[in-house]
Nucleic acid binder design. Structure first.
Lengths: 192, 192
DNA sequence: GGTGTGCATTGAACTAGATTAAGAAATCAG
DNA sequence: CTGATTTCTTAATCTAGTTCAATGCACACC
């Protein structure tokens, strides 16, 4: 049950068995049916989660009521609104399950306790957020400099499992284009 | 000399005089003429800096040789490539001074020493990177969902001093549009 | 078994923004 | 002060991507 999350945190720091035991004892296991909102605009994000199984989407709603998908979450990904969680201020994000999803979650309290009892986790979480920042910067750069078709090709190469699991218009939203145009791009690629 | 940086770090955590003394003793002061590259693609970023005075731009170069500006830096801003600095891996970014610039800088070693001697700084740096992530996510969201004119208006409202200090085509690059189109937008706004 | 309801595709008309080119204005080096 | 270089503007043409239908498709649901 803890295999995948252990492997995930062990990637950057090596832990002793006792440290992992503390880690496990502080994790809360959660099963959530599909189409459930884990977080809404205006709410304070009271969890940080690791996806054991399932699929989620994190999105904004713009002033015209349009959804813009910021990221998908699948197995072995971390989930939450870091700023809202740590500063305990209202989030602007929505997080919704797309499939039935199993998670390990922390509350602010249990995370703090973990960091207190096993300070090495500071490094794990710092690396996570650094990688998240680098990935977001990279995506911003590409959404500015690359045409939609290349962004799409890169997306399916990077996340080959996602197109089979989520409606296509979610991917269009993630790429910042209309569903019709994504359909046209796909038609064009298929012809080759 | 340390006034502004002290105010900056004190915003999120309160420090004692002795702690600030340690902090100051580890900062290196640096004066850099304009049009100097502080970091290049392929280099490992060996500094994290705070801008006392001056102006910088951080940018990528895409596969066609086009520059895309990721952010500007002015007084009271932090500078660097967080991931490259901490993981000591090659950066994909360029950082260049636009004006003569004065900085305080850390090396990886001095930053580590600071964190060791005054662990409260962990929190300061974590908050900085969290805010950076939230701002970058927000910008990605807007670059996907808002038209260029609104993004421009928001930019000049948020950073009123920058348009007076940097060439206009840098702002176009930051907004992800061509300089000609930005000029058109400005013409249109001025007419009203 | 029908019948909604959400999803993908296709095409036509449209628009935001790119590209190219040329001239005007500003800035800089000597 | 002067020529050179960089920057900004304007206008014409072009294109990536949108919007607005209409149609077909695949299910879930009773």
């Amino acid at each position: 049950m803890y295999e995948s999350i252990d492997k995930n945190v062990n990637r950057s720091v090596t832990f002793l068995k006792e440290e992992l035991d503390i880690f496990h004892s502080l994790l809360e296991h959660k099963a959530v049916p599909k189409k459930t909102l884990l977080l809404q605009d205006g709410e304070i994000c009271n969890f940080e989660g690791y996806i054991i199984k399932g699929c989620t989407r994190t999105y904004y709603i713009d002033e015209n009521g349009f959804e813009v998908i910021l990221q998908f979450g699948i197995e072995d990904w971390w989930l939450g609104d870091v700023a809202s969680f740590h500063e305990q201020k209202p989030s602007k994000l929505f997080i919704e399950t797309i499939e039935d999803t199993e998670l390990f979650v922390f509350s602010p309290q249990t995370k703090e306790e973990l960091l207190f009892r096993v300070p090495k986790f500071e490094r794990v979480f710092r690396l996570l957020i650094q990688r998240n920042l680098a990935a977001t910067q990279n995506r911003l750069f590409k959404s500015i400099s690359q045409p939609a078709q290349e962004r799409y090709l890169e997306f399916i190469e990077k996340y080959p499992s996602i197109p089979q699991r989520v409606p296509q218009h979610y991917i269009a939203s993630y790429l910042g284009i209309s569903p019709e145009f994504l359909s046209k791009i796909r038609g064009k690629i298929a012809k080759k």
